[in-house]
Structure formats: structure tokens, C-alpha cells
Nucleic acid binder design. Structure first.
Lengths: 220, 220
DNA sequence: CTGCATCTGTCAGCGTCCCGTCAGATTGGT
DNA sequence: ACCAATCTGACGGGACGCTGACAGATGCAG
């Protein structure tokens, strides 16, 4: 379940990304209209979150182009100014839903879920790979069917790795995800959590790429 | 058991919400016709309370669109002016019942109940898990068949957990549900209610996921 | 109006568990 | 083989959640 986030403001983007990821979406983020136009046109997404106020190519233009090309991905439009005309424009251009800033993250999530559901993509908050299964709703993790209790940090870490299962996640990114970038912890804190996770999940669940980061592998 | 409340006046909306919640309904609230149109079309509700006097899209239009789409959810229409013609219009558009402002909350609740019951919503109003049974219509809770008396807050909490039984509900969400986000209570208030609930229901009914929130489990 | 009962928010104390830190072992790359 | 990166076990401070007690608020009865 992948989402494309088009937003030039990094602060907002960070929040949105975190919110979406907690409900099990894997989020790709681009800052500009051009990049969005390219990403959305070449990759397959289950949902696109589109901010209208972009530096280069206008969001509405991008949206119209997509629709013109027959791309049917559900699009949720964000905009600063919530005027009536703009809303109509957005709907006319092919937006599936519309959300004026500022908005509450819960609302964004609710609407995102609704869009995905309507599009027929069943919101799968349940991931399984190999002998490992992660349920983002119940916040449970099971190895070979038997449940394993997780502490908050451990769960957030395994969730993040699960959502980004297909790539190596840099340690810095994990640290940023677990603690707001402000908190300064010894780098060792992450390693400690990884160690505890490995003990619970079995040693081979989490792999290390020395100098880069960590990745999840199905347990063989 | 979920209700959608479409009402632009926040004062009225607050009262209605509280009233509905005391009878065990989980209430979603939108302010505009557009939002209502979207919410009602994408989510599944057991009841919709629709105010006609909306700023953007007229309530009647929304209602007609829903019916046109085959959405059969019972709709209770509220309106400021109770003229005869308007009532006919409302019924014609597909409303199931009609209530002129001002009205007494008791009457609203009575009609809401009637609509849900008529729609066969009886099926969803009674939940049973393990030795615990929760009846949202009668506002009763029973453990192993013997009824337990609940205070209002306790009942709203157990209702909310029952409705969202399949996931871990974050403490913040519970706080927001019990008190409007405006009220700022010490976080401990929630814990106090949970403790009282546990004493009544037996310790194992409500589970804690430290750092996340609470969840309901059938009593084994 | 007064007294009683109930509900519920606040507080303080306590136990449990989380997790950051440290120190030493171990691994992997060159 | 050497060095840096990573791993791991142990430990302790502190966050988190639970509970009992209390008091203000509210409602009801007399």
C-alpha cells in the first residue's frame, strides 16, 4: 500500500508522512510539481496527497495532466486557502477529496482511508513476511504464529522496517523516526533496541548493512 | 453504531453530539454539505442527522445525491423553519424523519432510536465478547449475564472500546472522545475511569498496551 | 433550602517496566 | 592484523500506569 505525498513544506510533509505510516502506508515524498508529475506518471500508487501550493508546476495542472493521461489513482488535495471557487476547481480537475489547511491529522487519515477503501484497495494494516507478521491495528507482532509482546519503541521500529521492507533503512533515518530530530541520544540507543528486537524475533529477522543501516528480511 | 452529524452551528452540534453519545452512538461531525456528501458516501453509518441550513451545499441536495447513489442510511432531517412545504420537500428527497428546531434533546434521541431500530440496526446495537455483553440501545452492560450498572462516562468509554474492539485505542483518542478536545483534564482522569471500570468488569476485560493505549478483550 | 448520594477530577504514593548508557566483546572491511 | 563499526549484557534512573483517598460539583429528596 503506497502513497505519494506532494508537499513542498518539509515540516508539514514530515507530520503527514508519520501519520500515514502509522496506518501502514509506505510514503514517497516529492517537493515539486515536476517531480510529482513524473513520479505519479511512472509509478503505481494507491493514493496521492497533493498540495496545491507548489513552487514550480501548479498542483491543479499536475492533477489535470494525470487525469488526462487516464491515471485513476485517488487524489486528496490539500490547500492553504479554502475558498469556494478553489474547491470547485479542485473537484473539477479530478480530485477525489479536498482538505483545507490547517487540518487535523486524524481527519487526513480518515479521509485517506476512505479514499483507499472506496478505490477497492482494502486498507491492509496487516503485514506478513516469512514467519513474521505485524498487525498495525492491534499493535501485535507474531513469529511463526505465536505472539510476541513489544515495547513502544520496539514496535515503532519494527513497523518502520516493515513498511520499508524493500530497502535498507539508514540508521540516521531510523533515529529520526523514533525520536524527533531534536532529541540527541547516543547512537548506541538504536543498537540497543535492535539487539532487543533480535532477541525477541530470532536473530536473522533484521539484517545489518555495515555503514549504511538495517533491513528486514523474511525469516527463512 | 455510528452516526454522522451534519450541522454548521457548533453549539447545537455539541449538544446533539453529547446526547447521541450518551445513548451509545459514536458520532462523526461535519460542518459543510460538501464534507457531508463525501463522508456519507464513503463511510458506513447507521444514522445520519442532517441540518438543512448549510453554508455551501444545501442539505436537500446532499440528501438527494445520496439517495441517487443508492445509499439507504436512515436520515433524520433538522431544519430551522418548519413550514409545511419544506417538510414535504424533505420527505420527497428521501428523509426518513423530520424534526423542526427548536427541539428537545429527548425527542431527538427518541426519533434517532426509532430510525435505527426500524432500519434493523438492532443487529449492531448489541455486542458480545467473551463473558462481556454491551447493549448500546439499552445502555446496559453485563458480565456473565448479570447486569452491571454504569455511570455515564464509564458507559461511553466501554462503548467506544466495544465499537473499536479490533484495535488498540490510543489514550489521546479516548480522551478526545470522552471530553471535547477543548477540555483539558489531567491525563490521570482517564486512568481513574479505567480503574473503576476494571473493578466492575473484572480485571482482565480491559487490556493496557503500555505507551499506546487500551483495548478490549473478551474475558476468557 | 438543606442534607444526602453519586459522580468524577485531582493528588500522592507506589510498583513495574522501559530504555539510555556504559563497558567490554565481536565482527567485518581493508 | 588492525581499527572502526556494531553487538550484547548489565544496570539504574525515570517514565508510565495503577490505586485509594479526597473534595468539588451536581442532582435528588425531604
Amino acid at each position: 500500500m503506497r502513497a505519494l505525498l506532494v508537499e513542498d513544506d518539509d515540516r508539514i510533509a514530515g507530520n503527514v508522512r508519520r501519520a500515514l505510516e502509522t496506518v501502514g502506508l509506505s510514503v514517497e515524498h516529492v517537493h515539486s510539481g515536476e517531480a510529482a508529475w513524473f513520479e505519479g506518471g511512472t509509478q503505481s500508487y494507491d493514493l496521492i496527497i497533493l498540495d496545491l501550493g507548489l513552487p514550480d508546476l501548479d498542483g491543479l495542472t499536475v492533477l489535470k495532466r494525470w487525469r488526462g493521461e487516464g491515471i485513476e489513482t485517488p487524489v486528496l488535495v490539500l490547500t492553504a486557502r479554502g475558498t469556494w471557487t478553489e474547491r470547485v476547481e479542485g473537484i473539477d480537475a479530478g480530485a477525489d477529496d479536498y482538505l483545507p489547511k490547517p487540518f487535523r491529522m486524524e481527519e487526513l487519515i480518515a479521509r485517506a482511508r476512505a479514499l483507499i477503501r472506496r478505490a477497492g484497495g482494502r486498507g491492509g494494516a496487516r503485514h506478513a513476511l516469512g514467519h513474521l507478521s505485524v498487525d498495525l491495528n492491534q499493535m501485535t507482532v507474531a513469529v511463526q504464529g505465536i505472539p510476541v509482546t513489544m515495547t513502544p519503541l520496539e514496535f515503532r521500529l519494527i513497523s518502520y522496517l516493515t513498511i520499508h521492507r524493500n530497502r535498507v533503512v539508514p540508521a540516521t533515518e531510523l533515529l529520526e523516526h523514533l525520536y524527533g530530530d531534536d532529541d540527541k541520544k547516543e547512537a548506541n540507543a538504536l543498537e540497543a533496541i535492535i539487539a532487543r528486537l533480535r532477541r525477541k524475533l530470532g536473530g536473522s529477522a533484521i539484517g545489518t548493512r555495515r555503514g549504511f543501516g538495517y533491513f528486514l528480511r523474511g525469516i527463512a
